[in-house]
């Protein structure tokens, strides 16, 4: 879980790992192998699923085509698809509709579903709860939890602390482009003064 104020460099970190932006210095390792300097396509094929902040939905394509495109091996695996439909029933309803006609929450579901259609080593998920209604956030949280329990690694940026707390194990807090604190979610969740100091925000502990 990657936390921090606006402009702390969280999104930059994810996009740099993905190869969309080039780092000025330093190295990026995935399972011990250097991946900086590779193009985003090569990085993705090493097993990284990406859910960008703006969701990256192809609105001209149907929901089905969005998913099919995400399946690098060709066709989506049926059982995997069933799991996605179970998590996000709306996607089955709008299967053949252009993704542009979906609501914001449905788009976010589609974006997450695209990343989940095949097994990845690592998922980079950028603020999935942004601008969504609480009910939809809960649906997303369930799906992400499910994904986690299947043994996937997730690196997630989140501003919604309750969602972050529900999903996160390890936390890194960033400020001004650097990691200023690392620890377990349990430590951070139990210490409101630490939260305030690190993020300059008062986190409600709902």
């Amino acid at each position: 879980m990657l936390l921090g104020r606006n402009g702390a460099g969280k999104t930059t970190t994810l996009r740099t790992i993905m190869g969309l932006w080039q780092p000025h210095a330093g190295e990026i390792l995935l399972d011990g192998a250097h991946i900086q300097g590779l193009n985003p396509a090569q990085i993705a094929r090493r097993g990284i699923g990406f859910v960008p902040e703006d969701m990256g939905i192809f609105s001209d394509l149907t929901v089905e085509e969005n998913i099919r495109l995400a399946a690098l091996s060709g066709q989506p695996i049926p059982e995997r698809l069933e799991w996605i439909f179970a998590a996000f029933p709306a996607l089955r309803t709008f299967w053949h509709s252009p993704a542009g006609t979906l609501s914001g929450g449905q788009k976010q579901m589609l974006s997450v579903a695209r990343a989940m259609i095949e097994d990845r080593e690592l998922y980079l998920i950028d603020e999935p709860s942004k601008g969504l209604a609480p009910a939809i956030v809960a649906t997303l949280a369930r799906a992400l939890k499910d994904l986690k329990e299947r043994g996937a690694s997730i690196l997630m940026v989140e501003q919604n602390f309750s969602l972050a707390r529900a999903l996160g194990d390890h936390v890194a807090v960033m400020d001004d482009g650097r990691i200023t604190w690392t620890g377990t979610m349990a430590d951070l969740a139990g210490d409101t003064t630490l939260q305030e100091r690190l993020m300059g925000l008062k986190m409600e502990s709902a």
Partner: peptide, 20 residues
């Protein structure tokens, strides 16, 4: 599919693993 998606958002197509 790749071409149509790429017209809208080439970056995302890249990040999905296609060499645009």
């Amino acid at each position: 599919l790749i071409v149509r998606a790429g017209v809208e958002n080439p970056e995302m197509v890249q990040a999905m693993g296609y060499n645009i």
